[in-house]
Amino acid sequence: TGYYDVLGVKPDASDNELKKAYRKMALKFHPDKNPDGAEQFKQISQAYEVLSDEKKRQIYDQ
């Protein structure tokens, strides 16, 4: 599964769309709200870390 799929956004998503999707998913799977969501929360955080950084995103998109 790709990072875009993890966040539920298209590859041409804007920074604002990425942030909005990340916040929505992070709230849904945060371990405090969803004890079984810890692994998914890590994936969401990693996806956002890469896609929100312009240089990392360019490398990922290659």
Results as ranks from 00 to 15, higher is better:
residue 27 L to C: 14
residue 49 E to W: 12
residue 26 A to N: 04
residue 39 E to I: 08
residue 23 R to Y: 12
residue 19 K to A: 12
residue 24 K to M: 10
residue 31 P to W: 02
residue 62 Q to P: 06
residue 30 H to G: 07
residue 24 K to L: 12
residue 9 V to T: 05
residue 7 L to M: 08
residue 4 Y to A: 00
residue 11 P to D: 05
residue 2 G to P: 08
residue 57 R to F: 04
residue 35 P to F: 06
residue 20 K to L: 11
residue 58 Q to Y: 12
residue 11 P to C: 14
residue 9 V to M: 02
residue 34 N to E: 04
residue 38 A to W: 11
residue 33 K to C: 14
residue 28 K to Q: 12
residue 33 K to A: 10
residue 15 D to T: 14
residue 54 E to W: 14
residue 39 E to A: 09
residue 57 R to S: 07
residue 12 D to M: 04
residue 56 K to N: 07
residue 14 S to I: 03
residue 35 P to T: 04
residue 31 P to I: 06
residue 3 Y to K: 00
residue 55 K to I: 10
residue 30 H to C: 13
residue 44 I to E: 02
residue 26 A to S: 08
residue 2 G to I: 10
residue 16 N to C: 15
residue 43 Q to K: 13
residue 53 D to K: 09
residue 29 F to A: 04
residue 41 F to P: 01
residue 44 I to L: 07
residue 58 Q to W: 12
residue 38 A to E: 09
residue 21 A to G: 05
residue 12 D to K: 04
residue 33 K to Q: 11
residue 43 Q to A: 13
residue 12 D to E: 06
residue 58 Q to I: 10
residue 30 H to Q: 06
residue 36 D to T: 12
residue 62 Q to Y: 07
residue 19 K to M: 08
residue 17 E to C: 09
residue 45 S to W: 13
residue 55 K to T: 14
residue 45 S to F: 10
residue 39 E to Y: 09
residue 49 E to R: 12
residue 44 I to A: 05
residue 45 S to N: 11
residue 9 V to Y: 00
residue 28 K to D: 09
residue 29 F to M: 03
residue 11 P to H: 10
residue 45 S to Y: 10
residue 1 T to N: 11
residue 59 I to Y: 09
residue 14 S to Y: 00
residue 34 N to F: 08
residue 41 F to V: 01
residue 15 D to Q: 15
residue 3 Y to W: 11
residue 48 Y to W: 11
residue 7 L to C: 04
residue 4 Y to I: 00
residue 58 Q to P: 08
residue 41 F to Q: 02
residue 59 I to A: 12
residue 28 K to T: 09
residue 29 F to G: 02
residue 59 I to R: 09
residue 32 D to V: 06
residue 62 Q to I: 09
residue 32 D to C: 14
residue 30 H to T: 04
residue 60 Y to G: 05
residue 35 P to R: 05
residue 26 A to R: 13
residue 51 L to R: 00
residue 52 S to D: 03
residue 19 K to V: 07
residue 6 V to G: 01
residue 26 A to C: 15
residue 60 Y to T: 04
residue 8 G to S: 02
residue 61 D to M: 06
residue 62 Q to K: 10
residue 2 G to C: 15
residue 51 L to V: 04
residue 48 Y to A: 02
residue 35 P to S: 06
residue 48 Y to T: 02
residue 45 S to L: 15
residue 7 L to H: 01
residue 37 G to V: 06
residue 25 M to F: 05
residue 53 D to F: 04
residue 21 A to N: 03
residue 10 K to M: 10
residue 53 D to M: 03
residue 56 K to T: 11
residue 51 L to A: 02
residue 8 G to N: 05
residue 40 Q to V: 09
residue 7 L to E: 02
residue 54 E to T: 14
residue 25 M to P: 05
residue 20 K to A: 15
residue 4 Y to E: 00
residue 17 E to V: 05
residue 48 Y to S: 03
residue 48 Y to P: 02
residue 51 L to T: 04
residue 46 Q to C: 12
residue 56 K to A: 11
residue 7 L to G: 00
residue 2 G to H: 13
residue 56 K to L: 13
residue 23 R to K: 13
residue 60 Y to I: 04
residue 26 A to P: 01
residue 21 A to S: 01
residue 51 L to M: 01
residue 30 H to Y: 05
residue 43 Q to R: 12
residue 54 E to V: 14
residue 49 E to C: 14
residue 24 K to I: 10
residue 44 I to F: 03
residue 13 A to I: 06
residue 59 I to G: 07
residue 20 K to F: 09
residue 3 Y to L: 11
residue 48 Y to L: 04
residue 39 E to H: 06
residue 36 D to W: 09
residue 45 S to E: 14
residue 9 V to Q: 00
residue 36 D to S: 08
residue 30 H to E: 03
residue 5 D to R: 08
residue 46 Q to G: 06
residue 41 F to I: 04
residue 12 D to C: 15
residue 28 K to L: 15
residue 62 Q to L: 12
residue 9 V to N: 00
residue 37 G to A: 13
residue 44 I to V: 08
residue 51 L to G: 01
residue 41 F to Y: 11
residue 47 A to R: 00
residue 4 Y to Q: 01
residue 52 S to P: 02
residue 48 Y to F: 10
residue 61 D to C: 05
residue 60 Y to F: 03
residue 11 P to K: 09
residue 52 S to E: 03
residue 22 Y to N: 05
residue 15 D to I: 15
residue 47 A to D: 03
residue 36 D to A: 11
residue 1 T to I: 14
residue 35 P to K: 08
residue 55 K to G: 08
residue 43 Q to F: 11
residue 25 M to S: 03
residue 59 I to L: 12
residue 34 N to Q: 08
residue 47 A to E: 02
residue 60 Y to W: 04
residue 49 E to Q: 09
residue 45 S to I: 14
residue 17 E to Y: 01
residue 33 K to Y: 14
residue 39 E to C: 10
residue 40 Q to P: 02
residue 4 Y to C: 04
residue 48 Y to I: 02
residue 27 L to F: 08
residue 51 L to S: 00
residue 36 D to N: 12
residue 21 A to M: 02
residue 12 D to W: 13
residue 20 K to I: 15
residue 24 K to S: 12
residue 17 E to R: 00
residue 54 E to I: 13
residue 43 Q to N: 09
residue 34 N to L: 05
residue 20 K to H: 10
residue 20 K to Y: 08
residue 6 V to K: 02
residue 37 G to E: 09
residue 27 L to V: 11
residue 9 V to I: 10
residue 2 G to D: 14
residue 36 D to I: 06
residue 18 L to V: 09
residue 15 D to V: 13
residue 51 L to D: 01
residue 33 K to V: 14
residue 31 P to Q: 07
residue 1 T to C: 15
residue 5 D to E: 13
residue 21 A to W: 03
residue 4 Y to K: 01
residue 40 Q to H: 12
residue 32 D to L: 10
residue 27 L to S: 14
residue 35 P to Q: 06
residue 13 A to R: 00
residue 5 D to V: 07
residue 51 L to Y: 00
residue 19 K to D: 09
residue 45 S to P: 02
residue 40 Q to E: 08
residue 32 D to A: 11
residue 2 G to S: 15
residue 18 L to C: 04
residue 8 G to K: 05
residue 4 Y to G: 01
residue 42 K to T: 08
residue 14 S to N: 10
residue 10 K to F: 07
residue 26 A to E: 11
residue 7 L to Q: 01
residue 61 D to I: 03
residue 21 A to E: 00
residue 30 H to W: 07
residue 35 P to V: 06
residue 25 M to Q: 10
residue 21 A to C: 07
residue 60 Y to L: 02
residue 11 P to I: 08
residue 46 Q to P: 01
residue 16 N to V: 12
residue 49 E to I: 10
residue 46 Q to I: 14
residue 2 G to W: 15
residue 56 K to F: 08
residue 28 K to R: 09
residue 48 Y to R: 01
residue 35 P to D: 04
residue 49 E to F: 10
residue 60 Y to V: 05
residue 55 K to V: 12
residue 48 Y to V: 01
residue 33 K to R: 13
residue 22 Y to Q: 03
residue 20 K to V: 14
residue 40 Q to N: 05
residue 23 R to V: 13
residue 38 A to F: 10
residue 18 L to H: 02
residue 5 D to M: 08
residue 29 F to C: 07
residue 55 K to W: 08
residue 22 Y to E: 04
residue 16 N to K: 13
residue 2 G to T: 15
residue 51 L to I: 05
residue 56 K to I: 03
residue 50 V to A: 04
residue 52 S to F: 05
residue 27 L to G: 11
residue 19 K to I: 08
residue 58 Q to L: 12
residue 47 A to M: 03
residue 30 H to R: 10
residue 30 H to I: 05
residue 1 T to F: 15
residue 26 A to D: 05
residue 42 K to S: 10
residue 45 S to G: 06
residue 31 P to D: 11
residue 42 K to F: 11
residue 12 D to T: 12
residue 31 P to K: 08
residue 46 Q to A: 11
residue 15 D to W: 13
residue 6 V to M: 11
residue 58 Q to C: 12
residue 1 T to S: 12
residue 3 Y to N: 05
residue 19 K to N: 07
residue 9 V to S: 02
residue 50 V to H: 07
residue 10 K to A: 12
residue 47 A to F: 02
residue 47 A to N: 01
residue 28 K to N: 10
residue 11 P to N: 08
residue 35 P to N: 04
residue 44 I to P: 01
residue 16 N to S: 13
residue 54 E to P: 15
residue 18 L to E: 00
residue 50 V to D: 03
residue 34 N to H: 09
residue 25 M to G: 07
residue 57 R to C: 05
residue 24 K to Y: 09
residue 18 L to D: 00
residue 14 S to K: 05
residue 37 G to L: 13
residue 43 Q to M: 15
residue 33 K to G: 08
residue 42 K to Q: 10
residue 9 V to G: 02
residue 29 F to I: 04
residue 46 Q to S: 06
residue 53 D to A: 07
residue 52 S to G: 08
residue 7 L to K: 00
residue 8 G to D: 06
residue 57 R to H: 03
residue 30 H to V: 02
residue 61 D to L: 06
residue 11 P to E: 04
residue 6 V to E: 02
residue 43 Q to E: 11
residue 27 L to K: 13
residue 13 A to V: 10
residue 54 E to G: 09
residue 13 A to T: 04
residue 33 K to H: 13
residue 34 N to V: 06
residue 44 I to R: 00
residue 57 R to L: 03
residue 44 I to H: 00
residue 44 I to S: 02
residue 36 D to Y: 05
residue 29 F to H: 04
residue 30 H to L: 07
residue 12 D to H: 10
residue 55 K to M: 10
residue 46 Q to F: 09
residue 43 Q to P: 03
residue 32 D to G: 08
residue 20 K to D: 15
residue 46 Q to R: 11
residue 28 K to P: 07
residue 8 G to W: 03
residue 15 D to S: 14
residue 10 K to P: 11
residue 53 D to R: 08
residue 6 V to Q: 05
residue 34 N to I: 05
residue 52 S to V: 07
residue 52 S to T: 08
residue 59 I to W: 11
residue 5 D to Q: 11
residue 16 N to L: 14
residue 7 L to P: 01
residue 49 E to G: 05
residue 34 N to C: 11
residue 1 T to H: 13
residue 48 Y to G: 02
residue 14 S to M: 03
residue 56 K to E: 04
residue 61 D to Y: 06
residue 24 K to Q: 10
residue 13 A to K: 01
residue 57 R to V: 03
residue 9 V to F: 00
residue 11 P to F: 10
residue 22 Y to W: 07
residue 21 A to F: 00
residue 60 Y to D: 03
residue 25 M to N: 07
residue 11 P to Y: 08
residue 4 Y to N: 01
